[in-house]
Design a protein around this nucleic acid. Structure first.
Lengths: 189, 189
DNA sequence: CTTGCATGAGACATTCTTGTCTCATGTGCG
DNA sequence: CGCACATGAGACAAGAATGTCTCATGCAAG
């Protein structure tokens, strides 16, 4: 009976999100299997992390699909994207910080493709006049990752309420902290 | 002749910023001393990290002092704060991710004090009508850390230009990505 | 010159994690 | 029933990093 590989991966993701230095043994126990069996599924820690990376990439791609980044106002597309990504923010935060360790190693091609699609969304918003143009799409993409990770950690540590997750990120990213204070309500430019 | 402790700390900060898993031996060589001497200065890796944390806290406090968070518009105070913190963003990013590992350990009191001062700045901006009030000061503080770390990493990996550092963070944090005077209505759900 | 002291180099034991292996169990299936 | 196979438990060696120790070197002050 093949162990439920997907279940193992998700258990590992949940654990490593909280404790990124967890041992193979801890990962195995978290999944309810023995270290031996875990090792039969994933040749080693590297293989496990790579599999998690593949999972994260797949989930990001699925989120991008579901968010339909090319439809409607870019603003709304960003909202949809964050909402779709929210459930996987923990895993993404883990992978995001994990990536900082890959000194000069080959950048995973899957990520660059996702980066590009997200950057394209920001680019579209800029071209359409919805977004300001003095911030590069590359930075906006990085900032989105950073905010997702920050929010995931802040929620994990109880510093902010889980239910506000999407709202916090989207509102800060889109509108910033400054009051769009307009005595005359926002009208045509 | 006592080794230049400050020089060692800054070398360690610079190295760990780039490679957070660097060995004690690597840290020692980066500082131009032997592992034995490094160990005489800092009882162990923990002690070193704690010293780095103290350094980071001291630099944050100095930045807060220099930024005069209680003077003038909160908007300008945030600008000053980010500008003051910029030189230490690498160290802060390291400490920020390092903190994710301190499972339930005692939260360093120094950080909570800094968190509070930053949150107070946001609170002041909200009370004064400069900042929107639907985002909690706690979240804004977290977001600021997240953006600082993202920017530091993005710069380190060459994905964004170092000279844009402060501008990118401040503009995104304050104004968001949406164009002001944007014809698209604002829908705060 | 001689002494004192910090340092560098390196040996050593220890601990932790990993990867590999063996063996017993237990369950499903023919 | 008997077989095959996946699993769990655990032993084992290898490697890495750490903490501790000793010893020789070099420099500076007396």
């Amino acid at each position: 009976m093949a162990v439920d590989r997907d279940h193992v991966l998700r258990s590992a993701a949940a654990l490593l999100t909280r404790k990124s230095t967890a041992t193979m043994d801890e990962v195995a126990r978290a999944a309810g299997i023995s270290r031996a069996t875990l090792h039969r599924q994933f040749a080693g820690r590297d293989a496990l992390v790579r599999a998690l990376e593949a999972l994260g990439i797949a989930e990001c791609e699925a989120a991008l699909e579901a968010a339909r980044p090319d439809e409607g106002p870019a603003t709304d597309a960003v909202r949809r994207l964050v909402a779709e990504v929210e459930p996987h923010a923990g895993l993404l935060a883990f992978l995001y910080s994990e990536n900082q360790l890959f000194e000069g190693e080959e950048q995973n091609q899957g990520w660059t493709a996702i980066d590009e699609r997200i950057a394209d969304l920001f680019r579209r918003g800029q071209a359409g006049g919805e977004f300001r143009i003095d911030l590069t799409p590359a930075w906006l993409t990085e900032a989105l990752y950073g905010l997702l990770a920050s929010a995931a950690w802040a929620v994990a540590e109880g510093r902010v309420a889980p239910k506000d997750f999407t709202h916090m990120i989207v509102e800060l990213l889109l509108g910033g902290v400054r009051r769009q204070g307009d005595p005359a309500r926002r009208k045509e430019s």
